[in-house]
Each structure stands twice: as structure tokens, then as C-alpha cells.
Simulated scan of single mutants.
Amino acid sequence: MPTCQNCQKQWSWKDSQKAMFQFKKGMKCPYCGVTQYQTSDSQKRTSLVGMAPLLALPIVSLFDSWTITIVIILLASLSYLAVIPFFMKLSNKEELMW
């Protein structure tokens, strides 16, 4: 789980999810209110983990049913959203991804 670099408190899974869905570069710490940024290494790592649902596509193409295809893609996407906070690292300064 991400840890605030200002107050050193570890964010909960729920707080991490909320921060991710705000669609802002910076995420406010729920404890001290200081804006935190995802580190460049963390951005790269979460991007790679985000490709995991794409790995399900060749498997999905083996099924003839659209229902099974949609269920597998949804499960892969939800799994991604559930584990992404465990890969996040925070910084006080905004870093470029590359």
C-alpha cells in the first residue's frame, strides 16, 4: 500500500482507490492533506500491471459466447483495479514517467 512521504502513514486500500479515481496528477493524503504524486517507477509498474487484462484476450478468443468473453474481460479488469494500490509508491514531488 502507498505510504505518504510527508506524514509516513500508510494509506488504506479504500483511500488509495478513491485517490486513483479522482483523475488528477496529485493525490491528497487522507491524513495530512499534502499532495502526493506517484513515482515514475510506480507509474511504469502500474502500467505494466494494467496490461494484464490484455493477456486475457487470446484466451477469450477461444470462446464462442459473447457472454463468457465479457465476463472474462470484466473479471480481468476488476482484478487489475483491486491490486493496483499494492503497486503504488508515492513522492512529494511530481516525476516524469520517462
Score class of each variant (00 low, 15 high):
residue 1 M to R: 07
residue 2 P to M: 04
residue 2 P to G: 06
residue 3 T to E: 13
residue 6 N to M: 01
residue 6 N to Q: 07
residue 9 K to M: 13
residue 10 Q to T: 15
residue 12 S to T: 15
residue 12 S to L: 08
residue 12 S to K: 08
residue 13 W to G: 00
residue 15 D to A: 15
residue 15 D to K: 07
residue 18 K to E: 07
residue 18 K to A: 05
residue 18 K to M: 07
residue 19 A to K: 09
residue 19 A to C: 13
residue 20 M to W: 09
residue 20 M to V: 01
residue 21 F to W: 11
residue 23 F to S: 01
residue 24 K to Q: 15
residue 25 K to F: 14
residue 26 G to T: 05
residue 29 C to E: 04
residue 30 P to N: 10
residue 32 C to P: 03
residue 32 C to Q: 06
residue 34 V to T: 11
residue 35 T to N: 15
residue 39 T to F: 14
residue 40 S to C: 12
residue 41 D to V: 02
residue 42 S to A: 10
residue 42 S to V: 06
residue 43 Q to K: 07
residue 43 Q to L: 13
residue 46 T to S: 15
residue 46 T to N: 05
residue 48 L to C: 12
residue 49 V to F: 11
residue 50 G to N: 08
residue 50 G to K: 06
residue 52 A to P: 11
residue 54 L to W: 06
residue 54 L to C: 10
residue 54 L to Q: 02
residue 55 L to H: 02
residue 58 P to V: 06
residue 58 P to H: 07
residue 61 S to Q: 14
residue 61 S to R: 14
residue 61 S to N: 11
residue 63 F to V: 12
residue 65 S to N: 14
residue 67 T to C: 00
residue 71 V to G: 04
residue 72 I to Q: 05
residue 73 I to T: 10
residue 74 L to A: 15
residue 75 L to N: 05
residue 75 L to D: 02
residue 75 L to S: 07
residue 77 S to N: 10
residue 79 S to G: 11
residue 79 S to V: 08
residue 81 L to N: 04
residue 82 A to N: 13
residue 82 A to H: 15
residue 84 I to H: 12
residue 84 I to P: 10
residue 87 F to S: 01
residue 87 F to T: 02
residue 88 M to R: 10
residue 88 M to E: 02
residue 90 L to A: 04
residue 90 L to R: 10
residue 94 E to Q: 13
residue 95 E to H: 06
residue 96 L to I: 12
residue 97 M to F: 12
residue 97 M to S: 00
residue 98 W to K: 01
